[in-house]
Amino acid sequence: MIARKISVPIVTVESAPFWNAARQGRFVVPTCAACGKTHWYPRAVCPFCGAENIDWRAAFGEGTIYSFSVMRRAKEPYAIAYVTLAEGPTMLTNIVDCNFDTLHIGQSVRVAFGETENGPPVPLFRPG
């Protein structure tokens, strides 16, 4: 689905729940059981209230492009982007299966997992 080979993400003891869910095809977002807020990137300590009580909730998988850039200089040009999730936080990702020339800020996108070699799939987004 994309030409660029995606690097295997570094999985740590802290991020393992996220990547285990990804292996099962589920996109989960870390949400604090104490303050109710969802944060990004995922961590074990809530960046908003400090609680260590994080629920891994199934995400809607929808968002809008906050900003993006097409890396023209790469052998296989690719679109990097920040996508603001329906749950609130904005995350770094790639936009795939898209026309680079019509990508725009505010565009609606949906999550799609991209395979990595011998690693968990990583959440990407495509227009829709």
Binding site: I6, T12, E14, W19
Partner: peptide, 26 residues
């Protein structure tokens, strides 16, 4: 690899140039 954000940035091809480019685009 102990940088906690690494797993959520490196796979996406974040470089110096396209990081600053997203600031410019916004």
């Amino acid at each position: 690899p102990n940088q906690p954000e690494a797993g959520f940035e490196f796979p996406y091809g974040l470089t110096t140039a396209n990081g600053y480019a997203m600031c410019a685009m916004r």
